[in-house]
């Protein structure tokens, strides 16, 4: 599909040209965080936006990825790439085992189950201080591959940029595959989807695992990039932050997820000029956007630009 290629090319163009506007390492730092958050959001959007299943526990998967990498490299001396792969694979298995029973739940019940899961992960990480360093966190060795250690914001920018592009490309392909169409059918009506022969449980679990893998991968990368992990990123509030990014950018829009992550990561940095009114302004921006653009930033803008009226 040419539309897909064109939008992916646009994103690639932005990633390639952005460094021209990045004056120093602080700007790179913010750009890298945008990228890492965007990777989680692209995955989460597959679950929330396309399949219509809510998850309030994705910070838990993010944290397991981060701490998995941290513990395997720092405590057991594993090579970072192997740790990253095993942590991500471990999270995939866990998501599958958890997903089977809890994805039978719907609506509020599913939200509560994922919420509970996230909180359990967060408590375990904060209390197992011998492994995780407890509430004060633990240092993580740098990501090294083939004898060279990755360090410096500029190098990391390209690593994160490339990973984001791959993540978006995979997500776009998935959405346009039979699996993606099945997910959208599920979103529309689970009963209707099952009547047309869609195995709803299988599809839901599959997308749940995929989105957990996205979060775990971003978690692992974050841990190695930052060189330090604390349980702050595993809390319930971070889960809410991630869901907010997806909804803000626009559900069922992969680019919406990227834009949502970008805006909500950059905004707090830009709003520091308001000093103590920072949170007030931040709240006002969120409220106004949701009042005037209830479908999220990207879908609303796309519709306005193409001159069409909102369907339904």
């Amino acid at each position: 599909m040419s539309g897909r290629t064109a939008s992916l090319a646009t994103l690639a163009g932005i990633v390639l040209l952005l460094p021209l506007a990045l004056q120093n390492n602080y700007y790179y730092e913010v750009a890298i965080q945008v990228g890492l958050n965007a990777i989680v959001c692209v995955g989460l959007n597959l679950l929330i936006g396309y399949a219509g299943q809510i998850s309030l526990g994705h910070a838990g998967f993010f944290g397991l990825g981060a701490y998995g990498s941290a513990i395997l490299t720092a405590r057991y001396g594993w090579p970072p790439l192997a740790a990253l792969a095993s942590a991500t694979a471990g999270v995939a298995v866990l998501a599958y085992l958890i997903g089977r029973p809890i994805l039978r739940l719907r609506g509020h019940y599913l939200a509560m189950a994922t919420l509970g899961m996230g909180i359990i992960i967060s408590i375990v990480i904060a209390t197992e201080d011998r492994l995780t360093g407890g509430p004060d966190g633990m240092p993580v060795p740098a990501l090294a591959a083939f004898g060279a250690a990755l360090s410096g914001e500029r190098v990391w920018y390209w690593v994160v940029g490339a990973t984001l592009l791959a993540a978006v490309w995979l997500a776009l392909n998935l959405v346009d595959s039979p699996h993606g169409r099945a997910l959208r059918a599920l979103h529309g009506s689970e009963v209707g989807a099952e009547v047309t022969g869609i195995d709803s449980a299988r599809h839901k679990v599959k997308v749940f695992v995929i989105s957990a893998v996205y979060a775990a991968l971003a978690g692992s990368l974050t841990a190695h990039y930052a060189g330090f992990v604390t349980p702050a990123k595993v809390t319930f509030f971070h889960s809410i932050e991630l869901v907010t990014m997806v909804v803000f950018g626009g559900m069922a829009s992969t680019f919406g997820a990227v834009v949502g992550a970008a805006v909500l990561t950059v905004l707090p940095q830009a709003l520091t000029v308001f000093k103590e009114y920072e949170m007030v302004v931040f709240g006002a921006v969120m409220m106004l956007t949701m009042i005037f653009m209830p479908r999220g930033l990207v879908p609303t803008l796309a519709l306005t630009l193409s001159g069409r009226r909102l369907p339904r």
Binding site: E29, A226, A232, Q269
Partner: peptide
């Protein structure tokens, strides 16, 4: 801690501070 790290980078790279006095908690500091 994550925010503290970003702000620290901002202080060093952007604001070009001469000295940093801060870090209320151990996690942020480390």
């Amino acid at each position: 801690a994550e925010k503290a790290r970003t702000f620290a980078k901002r202080l060093i790279e952007q604001d070009k501070v001469d000295v940093i006095v801060g870090g209320s908690t151990t996690g942020e500091t480390m």
